[in-house]
Each structure stands twice: as structure tokens, then as C-alpha cells.
């Protein structure tokens, strides 16, 4: 199967099996490994990417479903320089093991794109689907608040 879509702003075409999945295609075929595999059933959010701007769990997304659409990964969020959100993430020293953080940042970026000054409650509601085992949640909230006030 040939699938054409935009990946981080560039039009690409990939050749895969009919039932190929977006996450494994991004990670293993295209070697953009910032997007993580962690549960495979959309329970943790580590694989979050944007599909036409909407935060999407790549692990349950058939590759065929993004044909003609625009997919953004963590690599596309900061191609030239880090976004204000990522700078805030560094300022708050958010990550510990770091494995879930691409997903956290992609989920948060989609929130700020829609709502540049979210309340704490809006942040929590929007971010609740993305798990962090190291327990960095409070710092994630602070980083989003920092990015929203500095935006």
C-alpha cells in the first residue's frame, strides 16, 4: 500500500503493508523515534502526534487513515528552534526518565494552540490521558502555565 501524507510539513509517500500502523511506520520505517511506544492501546498517550492539528494516539491509528492529512511529531514541533512550550519544559526541569515527555509535550502543544491561556482545570482535563510513571505531573502543569503566560 502506498500512503501519501504530510509529515512535519513535508509531503511524503510510504510503501507498507495494508494494515500498517502510524506509530510503527513513523518510528521504524521513517526513523522518527521521538514518538514513543508504551501501551499500544491508547491508554497512556506516549505516542501522541498531531493529525491535522488534533492530538492523536498513533499506536491505534491505521496508516491509511492519515492519507492526505498532515502529521506532526515532536521532531516537527521544534525543527528550527525549541517552541516556547519546550523552553518552559526545560525551565521547569520537567522530565525524569523522559520516555513519556514527547507525548506530554505534543498533547500540551495542541491545548495551547486552541487555548493560549488555559486554567489549571482545563490543563488537567486536557492532559489527563497522558501517563507519567515518574510522577512529573505537577511540573507539567507548571510548564504549561509558564508557556501560556509567556505566550
Amino acid at each position: 500500500m502506498t500512503t501519501s501524507f504530510k509529515l512535519n510539513g513535508k509531503s511524503i509517500e510510504v510503501e507498507t503493508a495494508e494494515d500498517a500502523n502510524l506509530l510503527w511506520t513513523i518510528r521504524e520505517n521513517l526513523q522518527l523515534t521521538g514518538t514513543k511506544f508504551a501501551c499500544g492501546i491508547a491508554q497512556c498517550g506516549s505516542c501522541t502526534v498531531h493529525v491535522d492539528g488534533v492530538p492523536t494516539r498513533a499506536c491505534i491509528t491505521p496508516l491509511a487513515s492519515v492519507a492526505g492529512k498532515s502529521v506532526t511529531t515532536i521532531e516537527g514541533l521544534s525543527e528550527k528552534k525549541l517552541s516556547a512550550l519546550q523552553e518552559a519544559w526545560i525551565a521547569e526541569q520537567v522530565p525524569q526518565c523522559g520516555y513519556c515527555q514527547s507525548g506530554q509535550i505534543m498533547q500540551a502543544a495542541a491545548l495551547l494552540a486552541e487555548n493560549p491561556s488555559p486554567s489549571r482545570e482545563e490543563i488537567v482535563n486536557h492532559m489527563n490521558g497522558v501517563l507519567c510513571r515518574c510522577g512529573t505531573y505537577l511540573r507539567i502543569i507548571k510548564a504549561i502555565e509558564r508557556a501560556s503566560t509567556s505566550a
Binding site: 518510528r27 525549541l82 526541569q93 522530565p95 523522559g98 509535550i105
Partner: peptide, 21 residues
């Protein structure tokens, strides 16, 4: 002192074994 591993964990370039190709 800021942690040295954090920038790479924020831009997706930190290498976990899962990411080795």
C-alpha cells in the same frame, strides 16, 4: 545545576534502546 539530559528529552532526540536503528 540544570540536568544535562533534559534538553534531549524535550526535543525527542534522547536515545532509548527502543529508538536504536
Amino acid at each position: 545545576v540544570p540536568r544535562r539530559d533534559i534538553p534531549a528529552k524535550v526535543d525527542g532526540t534522547a536515545q532509548f534502546a527502543m529508538d536504536v536503528h
